[in-house]
Design a protein around this nucleic acid. Structure first.
Length: 515
RNA sequence: CGGGGCGUGGCUCAGCCUGGUAGAGCGCUGCGUUCGGGACGCAGAGGUCGAAGGUUCAAAUCCUUUCGCCCCGACCA
């Protein structure tokens, strides 16, 4: 007994948090452990490629469903283009080739033939190698060239949900994997103005989605020339701050000008009888968003999910060991039915009754680690009182309270909204705390220099600085492992002096360490 | 592609220096005791020690080669 007590105490001390190490101890390792504990994904036999597990995929499905609806509300339709791109297509846009050449998977053969010792060797060499799409501008451009004849064919507003492959040197689950899932919108317009408008409109869609669904505050901005998409005229981004204060580019929207229409010869006959090149855009978000979600909200007890995207909003945990298990089961089922009859942002409340034959404590912790917004523990006592014992994932695990059953049913969607809002507020406050205006180069350097160089602690954040851009700026930043994240859009500003070069600078740029 | 590290049951690892033919904890299965909070006892299943050569009476252990993985950098949604 004494031994047990002692062990328990030690365990209690050691395992104060469900995730080890904690964010403060080792942030990158914490991130991996959260993914593992929440059963979001795991490494696969193929280097750089991950298996997205049901819980993680369900989140992606909610992301997809919501964005898909938003795209359609803004006039877009879905289509699907080939996985393979002829090498010659990729070669047509000079900057584009240069940008992607080093990370392409290349298919050179179309069959396998018997080799020595029962092995198989590639046979049937292709006349022209096929590239597994790293992005689809080129092939879609070729197709659009056939579709577009007249100004009456414009605009073309198409999105595709697809997988792409970029042979990354250093993969990280969700943040940077060799194969990843995404959507890519590709549009053609008759005028420059219209294309620019489309680019910014989709950036707004992304911002809205991030804020209202993911509870992710983002900064809309324009990329500096160094950070621009290969082949784009202007690249816009939504940048989010993770809890280690690094920036994560969470979505992009590109104004491609006529670069790709030139390459693919997308011509139309305008009203004035002139042959003209169309203006194109492209925009995308990927499974990286899940990485953003994890690193923005989760804590040392695991994943924390914004209710709107949570695979389950509410988990009911029946305590069946008491004297009236049948009554408890019936109570839980009836409760689930009543909750599912509620509508939360256009869909029924998602309720899971966890009847698995596991001990209560362990079961509870599993759902904590998976980030389920509301947990209801229900035993004979609650049944007798007509109450539920509620825990919220945005509060402490031990911070639980008894709520009358009917009151809870009536309030459930309101509570979910509260949690959603609390996550957004918290993330926004964190970003504000770790953002500053810097006009002194030494301060800039100090801000981005960790105390522990070998294993950097979370430091720095977003720095708003005047910058004239150019190689000097890039060089100073490179030494600090900092980069220009974006030039915020929609912010009025006085011109100033470049922090790095002393040259005149039109406006402030956000600098940060980044993923 | 550079620089470090590691490959031993499902997972985390010990054993290797000083060769003698495989261990622990967790997990898993069964039984029992527990149970409103990450339980405990007993019994059990599970490994050709990354792969291929070599040295040796004998190799997880020594030598050579090779493959794979992880971390740290340069490239990136």
């Amino acid at each position: 007994m004494a031994k047990q007590g002692k062990q328990k105490q030690q365990q209690g001390k050691k395992a104060k948090t469900a995730i080890s190490p904690t964010r403060a101890e080792d942030y990158p390792e914490w991130y991996q452990q959260v993914i593992k504990a929440a059963e979001l994904a795991e490494a696969s036999p193929v280097r750089g490629c991950m298996v997205i597990k049901p819980w993680g995929y369900a989140i992606w499905e909610h992301v997809q469903a919501t964005l898909d609806r938003m795209f359609k509300e803004t006039g877009h339709v879905n289509a699907y283009f080939p996985l393979f791109i002829p090498k010659s297509y990729l070669e047509k846009e000079a900057e584009h080739v240069e940008g992607f050449a080093t990370e392409c998977a290349v298919v050179t053969h179309h069959r396998l033939e018997p080799g020595p010792d029962g092995t198989l060797v590639p046979g049937g060499e292709l006349a022209e190698p096929l590239i597994v799409r790293p992005t689809s501008e080129t092939i879609i451009g070729e197709v659009y060239a056939k579709w577009v004849q007249s100004y009456r064919d414009l605009p073309i507003l198409i999105n595709q949900w697809a997988n792409v492959v970029r042979w990354e040197k250093r993969p990280r689950l969700f943040l940077r994997t060799t194969e990843f899932l995404w959507q890519e919108g590709h549009t053609c317009h008759a005028t420059r103005e219209e294309a620019v408008e489309e680019t910014l409109k989709m950036l707004d869609v992304y911002e809205t989605f991030a804020r209202d669904w993911m509870a992710l505050p983002v900064i809309k901005g324009e990329k500096t020339p160094e950070e621009r998409f290969p082949g784009a005229v202007d690249t816009y981004t939504i940048e989010a701050m993770m809890q280690d204060r690094k920036a994560l580019q969470s979505g992009t929207s590109h104004f491609l000008g006529q670069n790709f229409s030139k390459a693919a010869n997308i011509l139309f006959l305008d009203r004035d009888g002139e042959q003209k090149l169309v203006w194109t855009t492209s925009w995308g978000v990927s499974t990286r968003l899940i990485g953003a979600l994890i690193m923005t909200h989760s804590d040392d007890d695991g994943l924390v999910l914004p209710p709107k995207l949570a695979p389950s909003h509410i988990v009911i945990l029946p305590v069946l060991r008491g004297d009236a298990p049948d009554e408890v089961t019936a109570f839980c089922e009836a409760l689930a039915t009543d909750l599912r009859a509620q509508t939360y942002h256009g869909a029924p409340v998602r309720v899971l009754v966890d009847n698995r034959d596991l001990r209560g404590g362990e079961k509870t912790w599993q759902h904590v680690k998976k980030g389920v917004p509301i947990r209801l523990e229900i035993g004979p006592r609650d049944v007798k009182e007509g109450a539920v014992f509620m825990g919220r994932r945005d509060k402490g695990v031990k911070e639980k309270s008894s709520v009358p059953r009917d009151e809870f049913v009536a309030q459930a969607t309101t509570i979910l909204d509260e949690i959603q809002q609390a996550l957004l507020d918290r993330a926004l406050a964190y970003r504000e705390e770790n953002t500053r205006v810097i006009d002194d180069l030494e301060e800039f350097k100090a801000y981005f220099t960790p105390k522990n160089v070998d294993k950097p602690e979370p430091h720095g954040g977003f720095a708003h600085c005047y910058s004239a851009g150019g190689p000097e700026v890039v060089e100073i930043c490179r030494e600090l492992k900092v980069s220009a994240r974006c030039i915020p859009v929609g912010v009025e500003e006085e011109p100033g002096t470049c922090l790095f070069t002393g040259k005149p600078a039109a406006r402030r740029v956000i600098f940060a360490k980044a993923y």
